[in-house]
Simulated assay, not measured.
Amino acid sequence: MRRRRGSASVASTLFVLGLLCAALAGAVVWPLVVAADRERAQLRPATATVVESRPCGVQAAGDLVEVEIGGEVRRVPFDGCGHSRGQKFPVLVPADATGNVVVRPATANGSPLDELAERAHWILLTLACVAGGGYGLMLGRR
């Protein structure tokens, strides 16, 4: 009976690949999670009412909305356009609302979750490449 050689090296290779994948996932996702938490701490939710609607275009300045900031209702520009007058929707207001304030939509396209999903796609692609390379190395030893 012949003993199979290399089974210990396959296990150690898979262990190292697993550690590499975990380290890669942590290194890519961790800074984004910290930045998203920091950004969310600087914004608070509010409800805005459109006072003046402005058309969308190259020179669009954004709609003018009324929103309660620090206990008083203020008219501030909104980072968006084309809403109808009197429309109400959720927005994010800076926690420290001094000076010129621009409110943002509560569900923006460039949200941290979208960035996290994009990073997850890159992580999965990298892990697939590493796993494929490791599998190729194991097949090449036979």
Rank of each mutant, 00 (worst) to 15 (best):
V102M: 01
V102F: 08
V102I: 01
V102Y: 01
V102P: 11
V103E: 05
V103S: 05
V103D: 02
R104K: 05
R104Y: 01
P105H: 11
P105E: 10
P105D: 03
A106C: 09
A106M: 07
T107C: 08
T107L: 15
N109Q: 08
N109L: 15
N109T: 14
G110F: 01
G110H: 02
S111Y: 04
S111V: 01
P112Y: 06
P112Q: 00
P112L: 01
P112G: 04
L113F: 12
L113I: 13
L113D: 09
D114S: 07
D114G: 02
E115T: 13
E115V: 14
L116Y: 00
L116R: 05
L116G: 00
A117L: 11
A117C: 05
R119H: 04
R119A: 09
R119C: 00
A120D: 05
A120T: 14
H121Q: 10
H121F: 13
H121W: 12
W122N: 06
W122C: 03
W122G: 14
W122Y: 02
I123V: 09
I123N: 02
L124T: 06
L124P: 14
L124A: 15
L124E: 04
L124H: 14
L124I: 15
L125C: 10
L125G: 10
L125K: 07
L125D: 15
T126M: 08
T126I: 04
T126E: 08
T126K: 02
L127I: 11
L127M: 12
L127F: 07
L127W: 10
A128W: 04
A128S: 01
A128R: 08
C129T: 09
V130M: 12
V130K: 03
V130Y: 02
A131G: 08
G132Q: 11
G132Y: 13
G132S: 07
G133T: 11
G133C: 12
G133V: 13
G133N: 07
G134C: 13
G134A: 15
G134L: 10
Y135I: 10
G136T: 03
G136S: 04
G136Q: 02
G136K: 02
L137T: 02
L137A: 08
L137H: 12
L137D: 05
L137Q: 06
M138V: 11
M138N: 04
M138C: 08
L139S: 12
L139R: 15
L139W: 12
L139I: 12
L139D: 05
L139C: 09
G140F: 15
G140A: 08
G140Q: 13
G140P: 10
G140S: 15
R141F: 01
R141S: 12
R141L: 03
R141I: 00
